[in-house]
Design a protein around this nucleic acid. Structure first.
Length: 753
RNA sequence: GGGCUCAUAGCUCAGUUGGCUAGAGCGUUGCAUUGACAUUGCAAAGGUCCCAGGUUCAAAUCCUGGUGGGCCCACCA
């Protein structure tokens, strides 16, 4: 053995040996034939975006590998199932950035072409993170790898959609949606980022009133003025029509009373713009107000804004404000008004609430059983009560889920519209010459053939009244074939929320019956709502059973100063670079050591180095043992025996401590206290065995005495076993380097008790 | 605006239902070391456990209030 441990030499070979041995693929004996207390154990890897290289957050999945290796050693049929996500908007966004570098944009291509381009882009990158996970030693069953866009997986997802539609859980509706005019798509409530900002609050003269608004440019879309029903100042105006002087002429609106109006805000009077404000939209529904859209999906004012048409929202606001001022229609301006606005989490553009027909999932009926399942303990959220609270609070206040995205990257919603029956469908497509055409079908059908439209199609927008059929390429009403598929694609999370079901059902039903519900879902708190809660809802809907028995919330990896890693901070660490420098085991141990569940874990190069030193310590302990052994020596192994006959006090004591350690580590692993287990192992191996026991008894070992070496070997073997889930490579390497009783790799050796 | 959470050594953090003479990693200081390992060993320094009250035989741990961070949720124009 060399003087120091070189991980780069060992790791690759060992991983290949494991893979070749098929140890990651579970044996699935009849469940009744399993020994008492043993049962199937399964974890689904939270599927990384297929086109993303690995980051520190993924490295944290080492917690799952620890559980998986532990259960494999316990003798449980153990499955850790890997996968990759097409990651809809995320991937398309990355791809569009790439396009932008070559001076192109998504709007230069029809959807078929754009889709193919993204597809091959993902295909190029798909293997990167798979190989990286192997570098970390993850014992994933690669024979069961799945990708979210496999046709069989999509087919299961679409079946869910159809069933939900039949059950009345899917519907179309036109309401205000948070829309990013830059990314060209809507988002669900969850995806909206809120930021505080200071904007001028304009107090404008409005007929007989003065009212406060930050958005004077939406004045063209006002269809009412509202006051609080109990506001005595304005009671006499309620239900009256008032005449207002506007920038493009006088108009009349009705004064309405609605309790959504806060009498204390501004002057207690608000203009109501149902097409561009969430509150106003609700008010509009209550009072049957017209919805007058004055901002388009391109973020520019529409024709209804007269001379202001074509201006972007921000420019329009400034111009409108100035013009109002020159006309003497501004009473005063509060320049220090602080409020929060919703912005796009991808590009930070202020989101525009716009009326669009979208597909929704009715969530209340789904949330109910998901809440009950956790309350009844069918799924345990560990380790912290506070995540349960979060989970309940979100599900109890859940709003319906917008699953439409106006992007190409993902499966399209399987609804077909007949253009002949729905001539007011708005179409955007590229004609044969590549010009962008936009208009209603009834205005276009004389000039363009159906085939030309269908081929160059970028987007369609069907009015909410449009009829559609699911899964049918001919119209059921007119029997015509001028049908086009909905261009909205599914929110990625609609697919990933079904992951536990799709991945286990896709190959054969046996996996599903054997491993569902899965044992643990290990993830970080940031996708508790996005993914975990939705998997609960969808899993319960599809199977009547919870998708996992426990949810473990692992730590978030932060830098040496407790700061979140981000590109803009420039403090991102590359896990693979650390593996190359210090070895996978060192990084793995560093990620676990000192990590409190649900909290933060600080990773620095110094810390990983420290853990590399620990690996080296183990190496040298083995070297010392090897030095004192003669190759011809035959050992009387005491594995799994009590050592009750030992006379030597030192030996009795170390065996006693070793057994205590074994019980402690086992208990920690059963209760998700990975850091405690790691610290106990570190402390025992280094400070109890190496520093004390070895030093004290060096002379005896050198005498090459059979018994003392047997005890030492037993202790060391035990350490390797207990440490294996944490540091799989070096433990496997050392297991192989020393004499042992069983000729099986450590990965499938039995967990000591 | 509502809620959650944190505050412990120079830094990053553990501390499981109250029993601590308060720990770890990294860092610091001194000494040692051709002998498994300088990716080492021995030793040392370093903390009014944020502040003020309270409960208790006992509080870093529980309660109340305060101060200061972090986070989540939210349609007040």
């Amino acid at each position: 053995m060399d003087k120091t441990y070189d991980p780069t030499l060992a790791e690759d070979n060992i991983y290949r040996m494991w893979e070749k041995g098929g140890y990651f693929t579970p044996k699935m004996p009849d469940k009744k034939a399993l020994p008492a207390g043993r049962r199937a154990f399964s974890i689904l890897l939270p599927l990384p975006n297929a086109n993303d290289p690995m980051h520190m957050g993924h490295a944290m999945f080492v917690i799952q590998d620890i559980m998986i290796r532990y259960h494999r050693m316990l003798g449980d049929p153990t499955l850790w199932l890997p996968g990759g996500d097409h990651a809809g908007i995320e991937t398309q966004f990355v791809f569009e950035k790439k396009l932008a570098k070559s001076g192109k944009s998504r709007f230069d291509f029809d959807r078929e072409t754009l889709y193919r381009m993204i597809e091959s882009f993902v295909e190029e990158n798909k293997n990167i993170n798979r190989n990286q996970m192997k570098r970390l030693g993850f014992s994933l069953d690669w024979t069961r790898y799945h990708y979210s866009l496999e046709p069989e997986i999509i087919s299961i997802v679409l079946t869910t959609f159809r069933n939900m539609h039949a059950d009345g859980l899917i519907y179309r509706d036109e309401r205000l949606v948070n829309y990013c005019t830059k990314c060209g798509t809507s988002f669900s409530d969850l995806e909206i980022k809120h930021v505080e900002q200071i904007d001028p609050l304009y107090y404008m003269k409005y007929g007989p009133f003065v009212l406060a608004t930050v958005r004077p440019e939406t004045k063209f879309g006002d269809t009412a003025v509202a006051v609080h029903p109990k506001d005595k100042r304005y009671l006499r105006w309620v239900d009256k029509e008032i005449e207002v002087e506007g920038l493009i002429g006088k108009f009349t609106v009705k004064v309405i009373a609605d309790s959504a109006i806060d009498p204390k805000f501004g002057t207690g009077v608000a203009k109501v713009t149902p097409a561009h404000d969430m509150t106003d939209f609700e008010i509009g529904k209550r009072h049957n107000l017209a919805i007058k859209q004055v901002i388009g999906f391109d973020g520019r004012l529409a024709d209804a804004a007269g001379p202001y048409a074509g201006l972007k929202v921000k420019a329009a606001r400034e111009k409108v404000a100035t013009d109002l001022q020159t006309r003497g229609l501004i009473d005063h301006i509060d320049n220090n008004y602080t409020h929060t606005v919703g912005i796009c989490y991808k590009c930070n553009t202020v989101l525009e609430p716009l009326p669009i027909p979208q597909w929704y999932v009715k969530t209340k009926p789904l949330a109910k059983p998901a809440i009950a399942a956790v309350k009844e303990g069918k799924t345990k959220i560990v380790p912290l009560k506070r995540f349960e609270k979060l989970y309940f609070r979100w599900l109890e206040n859940i709003t319906d889920w917008n699953i439409s995205r106006q992007i190409v990257w993902g499966p399209r919603i399987p609804a077909w519209y007949c253009l002949d029956c729905n001539p007011t469908i708005r179409l955007t497509f590229l004609d044969k010459q590549g010009n962008k055409i936009n208009g209603l079908y009834k205005d276009l059908q004389d000039r363009y053939s159906f085939e030309e439209i269908a081929k160059g199609l970028q987007n369609l927008m069907a009015p909410i009244s449009a009829t559609y059929t699911l899964y049918s390429r001919s119209c059921k009403t007119c029997r015509g074939s001028h049908v086009v598929q909905e261009t909205d694609t599914f929110d990625t999370w609609f697919l990933s929320s079904q992951w536990p079901v799709t991945t286990l059902q896709v190959d054969n039903k046996k996996d599903f019956s054997y491993f569902y519900p899965t044992s643990v879902l290990d993830t970080m708190w940031d996708i508790l709502f996005f993914w975990v809660a939705r998997m609960m809802m969808m899993g319960l809907y599809k199977t009547g059973e919870v998708p996992f028995e426990a949810v473990h919330i692992h730590s978030r990896v932060v830098d040496a100063h407790g700061q979140k890693m981000s590109k803009s901070r420039g403090n991102v660490m590359d896990p693979i670079a650390l593996v190359e420098k210090f070895g996978a085991d060192a990084l793995r141990f560093a990620l676990v050591f000192g990590a409190a569940p649900g909290g933060d874990i600080a990773i620095s190069e110094d810390k990983v180095r420290g853990m590399r030193n620990f690996a080296n310590k183990l190496w040298n302990m083995a070297r010392f043992i090897e030095m004192n052994i003669q190759t011809s020596q035959k050992f009387n192994f005491f594995e799994n025996k009590n050592f009750e006959s030992l006379q030597n006090n030192e030996e009795k004591q170390i065996i006693n401590d070793l057994n205590k350690l074994t019980a402690h580590v086992t208990k920690c692993l059963d209760t998700y206290r990975f850091s405690d287990a790691a610290q106990a192992l570190y402390d025992f191996a280094w400070h109890r065995v190496a520093d004390v026991y070895l030093e004290k008894n060096k002379e005896r070992f050198k005498m090459n005495e059979d018994q003392s070496l047997t005890v030492l070997l037993h202790v060391f073997h035990r350490i390797l076993k207990l440490l294996h889930p944490f540091m799989p490579f070096i433990t496997e390497e050392l297991w192989n380097a020393l004499p042992r009783k069983y000729d099986k790799p450590l990965i499938i050796s039995s967990w000591p008790s």
